[in-house]
Computed example of a mutant assay.
Amino acid sequence: MTLTPTRTILDEARAVGRGVGAFNVVHLETAEALAGAAEDAGLPVILQLSENCVRYHGAFTPIALATLAVAEASSARVAVHLDHAEDPELALLAIERGFGSVMYDGAKLDFDRNVATTRLVVERANAAGVLVEAELGEIGGKDGAHAPGVRTDPGEAARFVAETGVHALAVAVGSSHAMTERVAAIDLDLVARLAAAVPVPLVLHGSSGVPDETIVRGIRSGLTKINVSTHLNARFTGAVREYLAAHPAAVDSRSYVAAGRAAVRSEAARLLTLFASTSKETG
């Protein structure tokens, strides 16, 4: 199947009150697992490459082309997205290479500089039919640059969307990146006020630390794109540990990496189904 535009997936989900899983690719096996999860669940998925992932692989092109190839070969509806690009040039490169969406992350900049740089990315993306996600109000856990209690202001969010023309907005509502325990609480009232204030899908980053039931309530309050990375990484690593403990003589990395891939596929399919369970079409 050909790539599905991110915009199509998000607009359809938002129209019926459904959440969409946006899961981070770390290596080829992750991409394979996530596309397989979408096939198993019969639901669309967004595969994300972060700036950190690109740095890990040493260059954008190899891991980007591999992820695009996995998406194109899948029988599921799969979109490919660039996540947390603080370098606008990387965002522009992803647009040129055929990604369905990019996130330009200018949250560390002051409001006016964030608006100006984001607008430049949006202009280039619009010419290519690519969706742009941006961030307003830092999400916790990013390089330690987060003051407890920071939240996105609905009025400022409305102004930011209007001035930049972004197509999706990542908001700070209480979640935090890289959490390994699912104990975070999110401000559901703020989610609802943000959803009423802006005309674009809202994105929850740091979802790995948020319990299932809270994510479902967040989707019902107005969240659409649910980003998950650390939670799935933990499943991959746990399965590898279990395999090696049971097979201490194993030397072929394919055997234990396959175990990790299978664990991610199973859990990602469960999450996709959970996020879609809020749809008005399914009650």
Rank of each mutant, 00 (worst) to 15 (best):
E12S: 12
A125W: 00
A35C: 07
C53G: 05
T224K: 00
D212W: 11
G260Y: 07
A245C: 11
L93G: 09
V78L: 05
S266V: 13
A192K: 03
V161S: 08
H177M: 10
R254W: 09
L274W: 06
A15Y: 13
G260V: 09
A239D: 05
L43P: 08
H247W: 07
P148S: 11
L188W: 02
V173Q: 01
T273Y: 09
L204P: 04
G206Q: 05
A157P: 08
S277N: 12
A79K: 10
D110V: 07
G129V: 03
I226Q: 04
I139V: 15
H81E: 13
H84N: 09
A66M: 13
G100Q: 02
V203Y: 02
I46L: 15
E135Y: 11
D252P: 04
A73L: 02
A246L: 13
S101Q: 03
A41K: 03
G209I: 02
E51F: 01
L188Q: 02
L190A: 04
A170K: 04
A268D: 03
H27S: 15
N24E: 06
V45E: 05
T237W: 12
T4A: 09
H231K: 11
M179P: 03
A147E: 15
Q48C: 14
R193T: 07
F60R: 09
V216Y: 01
Y104F: 15
L194C: 01
G218A: 10
L131D: 00
F111G: 05
A196Q: 14
D143G: 08
K225R: 13
V198I: 05
G155F: 09
D187A: 09
E281S: 14
S253F: 15
G165T: 07
T273W: 09
A69E: 15
V228G: 04
I95Y: 02
L202I: 03
A134N: 02
A116V: 10
R159W: 10
Q48F: 05
A162V: 12
V200A: 02
A22P: 15
P62C: 07
S266C: 08
T67M: 01
R18N: 11
V121E: 00
K280W: 13
S253L: 13
S266N: 09
A276G: 12
M179K: 14
P148Y: 10
A157R: 04
G19K: 00
C53D: 07
S101F: 00
A250W: 04
R124S: 06
E89K: 13
V228P: 02
H177R: 08
S74N: 01
S279A: 14
H146S: 13
H146L: 11
E135K: 09
H81S: 10
K280Y: 12
S50I: 05
F23M: 05
D110C: 05
P199T: 14
L223G: 01
T2S: 14
F99L: 13
P5V: 07
H84F: 05
G209V: 04
A258Y: 08
R261Y: 08
R182F: 08
E163I: 10
T61L: 15
P5F: 03
A249T: 14
L204K: 00
S221R: 03
M1S: 14
G140A: 07
A33F: 01
F160C: 06
A258P: 10
V240T: 15
A116D: 14
G141L: 08
H27W: 13
A178V: 12
T224P: 01
V171P: 02
E39T: 05
N233G: 08
D87I: 12
